[in-house]
Nucleic acid binder design. Structure first.
Lengths: 228, 228
DNA sequence: CGTCGACTTGACTCGGCTCAATGCGAGTGG
DNA sequence: CCACTCGCATTGAGCCGAGTCAAGTCGACG
């Protein structure tokens, strides 16, 4: 089966159309540590991740980093701006050897013109992204650090967790620092909170992987209204 | 001239097309205090504000409110989800008597089908919204309260300020509470900071209106890297 | 074996939140 | 016209969550 069939953006296209769409793309491989595009660079293409893992980060004028999101296989990245003739708002760092398909601007125009469902799907995808960003905004504005970390972890579990009995395993490298940059806090605070959770048996950290033993307890922390 | 000509979403359409587009809409009026749609309600239409002012707010499970944005004349609202078959993520409160045009789902489909530039424009609009949300996220995550308030005010000045000599006047009602809800802080902290600015002559508050006397000094506070 | 990156832990500090008291102008009704 | 209320704003006192900084551990890797 056509690998593109699993991509939201191309839902509603038939097998033959999918093949045509793929023929408009080219394959790009980047090893761990590589970069697909940099912040501020002219957005001339968008990508679909086939395998590997990517971290989208933004750097502030003062050199602080913020993790915007993780990109998992089948996700789009670099799409927001590539459709809109702009500059990339962040940098895409490869954290696990990655293979991606890439459509340049010309291809984008052709896609939009020749395959009407694509525009609609893109809008749906964007809408989802906006809703998610608004949620994160609200969380940053109203919740305590512990809750935000719980949410971040829960979200990662949902998007990329592998179930193992009642445990959920995340087996790609997330550092304390990364969690801090996702939740707007510091490495130290994350470390303290994770230690606490480890004592309470909610959570276990191993090399380059994380196991959540009590996902529901984590979700409870995320939702708890304790944060007057 | 056709009033829709000023709307980003309809850029690239000719006079005749604009008239057709408008014929697909209906006009909705709401007085101050009214509501166009509520959070969680099924998103069955999107709007363009012709006149008046609207505040988009989100309420959390615990009853805390967050101001997502202000909607000014010529802005779209309710569009993100209406294009994507979803529920409204927030409530739209009228803060100055408003007149808006409204397209329901059927009209949206027709728009997308019969007027190709609209889909592209919509994507550009969404892209801008996403970039802005990411910026606000970054600010919430990395900046101090004073900076965030300065940014919020600066942004409002740019979007809706009326120049009066070197002053910028914002003449619709924004309460301390609103600023707090936009920046993720409390009414008290906003009040203290605004008092300080008032002493320093940066800013002046009157009934239902705000005057920024030194916009550049405000912008400087917003950008200052003092916030380690 | 030494270095280096990631993580932990403690001590200290402080920005900003909480709560309470008070001020103040605009409506509203007797 | 005055008294009362109501929404909004101000200000002070106290406290605490989380940031900062320093010191040290642990494991991986050359």
């Amino acid at each position: 089966m056509e690998p593109l069939a699993k991509i939201e953006l191309f839902k509603g296209l038939n097998e033959r159309e999918l093949v045509k769409v793929r023929e408009l793309s080219r394959t790009v491989r980047k090893p761990k540590g590589g970069i697909f595009f940099r912040q501020e660079q002219d957005a001339d293409a968008f990508y679909v991740l086939l395998s590997g893992r990517i971290k989208a980060v933004q750097t502030t004028a003062e050199g602080k980093e913020v993790v915007i999101r993780y990109v998992h296989p089948h996700d789009l990245f670099g799409c927001v701006t590539a459709f809109g003739n702009d500059r990339y708002p962040g940098t895409s760092e490869v954290i696990e050897d990655a293979i991606a398909l890439c459509w340049d601007r010309k291809a984008v125009e052709k896609l939009m013109r020749d395959f009407p469902p694509v525009a609609l799907n893109a809008m749906r995808t964007f809408g989802g992204r906006i809703t998610e960003l608004q949620d994160r905004n609200r969380e940053l504005a109203t919740e305590r650090v512990e809750q935000r970390i719980a949410r971040a972890l829960t979200r990662i579990c949902e998007q990329a967790g592998r179930k193992d009995g009642s445990d959920v395993v995340i087996d790609f490298p997330i550092r304390r620092q990364d969690l801090a940059e996702m939740t707007g806090t510091t490495l130290f605070t994350v470390s303290r909170i994770l230690s606490d959770w480890e004592n309470r048996g909610i959570f276990k950290s191993g090399r380059q992987k994380i196991t959540v033993r009590k996902p529901d307890e984590l979700a409870e922390i995320a939702e708890s209204s304790a944060a007057q």
